[in-house]
Design a protein around this nucleic acid. Structure first.
Lengths: 202, 202
DNA sequence: GGACTGACAGATATTGAAATCTGTCAGTCC
DNA sequence: GGACTGACAGATTTCAATATCTGTCAGTCC
């Protein structure tokens, strides 16, 4: 009966099971049950439970990347673009934390495990920040002698608003105000920011 | 025999027990045993185990406050003062994380519980940042229309370097470089930072 | 013959009975 | 008479037996 079991179907079912039971309770057997197959079949597509969990997370993160990219508005100034980008990322994280608690918890667990998927996610996002900063440098709006390093600094300075460890603070009613204050400070810094490079500069 | 049992002696013993067994294993009975008294006596000085744990943490945090204040160098410019202050705080946190793992874990637990002692700690430290910023504003080195709010923003932007949730990242060899980059960005921001106030401004 | 099953070994999680801990307080001791 | 003890009730933790889960693979079934 029915079509062959695909990796995609397994991922969708896993996401559903994760949402229902949470990362601590969700088992491979549950996923197989949801699909009406034996759990051995799942192992035909994913070598280990960890690999499966990782694939789900990657799918989820890829969706975020795509949205972040898609919603880019190139008519804005670099400052506005950066502020908008950070705001959108913050909104997305906040939303998925309140709406998708279980998946978010899975994600947090993976961050804690210092997983490769997370590294890739971070690199990708910091890369997007770098792109915006490069625009700002080109238009003389921002000053910096090391775009990559500055992008990382912007990322680090805004950790409270996207690192899952701070998720509980996102419910605070003053959080948007704190966000605005930090972003303003950072954007002001980009307007004249000569970070002495790690190896020293002339 | 010997002197009467003092709160101070109990706190010292508790700290020792916490260091030896860690917050998960340390019991009030252990503390009493270390002091050679019955655990009922400990309850004469501290109403609950939580109150005892809180008092130890407060003692520990007070020591940090005092040191931070003591090492203040008033001959520096505001930028240098801020950079120095943040660096000293970071060094202290990093050190106590690597040397005093058990106490640090207790502290992290309390932060997670969103305890009042922690609020007091944060307010105190953000207050010190505000003081430095005020110096900068007075000397025309910094520009801001809301010192308190900006101090909080500086604090939030440097969370990665003092929030215990990020402690595992402090072992990374590039962390000092990341710290320098963020602090430079923040200090640059303070030189010309007009945060639109929450209620809007002209 | 390739997708799938299901029984299996070892690893991990659950459970409930026993042990320990927290917090109280009547009573001891200087 | 005030600092301290120690036995106690209820809450929490530990531990070991039991159940479930992960990952493998020989075998079934279109």
């Amino acid at each position: 009966m029915a079509e062959a079991l695909t990796s995609e179907a397994i991922l969708a079912a896993t996401e559903e099971v994760l949402r229902r039971y949470g990362p601590a309770k969700a088992t491979v057997v549950d996923v197989a049950k949801a699909l009406g197959v034996s759990h051995g079949s799942v192992y035909r597509h994913f070598a280990t439970k960890a690999a499966l969990r990782e694939a789900v997370t990657r799918r989820w993160l890829d969706a975020i990347h795509e949205e972040m990219e898609k919603e880019f508005d190139p008519t804005l100034s670099a400052s506005e673009m950066l502020r908008d980008w950070l705001q959108r990322l913050f909104d997305k994280k906040r939303l998925s934390h309140s709406e998708d608690v279980e998946l978010f918890t899975t994600f947090r667990t993976l961050v804690g495990e210092n997983n490769a998927v997370v590294d890739y996610h971070l690199e990708h996002l910091v890369g997007q920040v770098a792109r915006i900063i490069r625009v700002g440098v080109d238009t003389r709006e921002f000053v910096t002698d090391d775009v990559e390093r500055t992008a990382q600094a912007v990322w680090d300075a805004t950790q409270v608003f996207h690192h899952p460890a701070h998720a509980q603070e996102w419910g605070n009613p003053h959080i948007q105000d704190a966000f605005d204050a930090v972003v303003s400070l950072v954007v002001a810094g980009l307007r004249y920011n000569r970070i002495p490079s790690a190896t020293g500069d002339a």
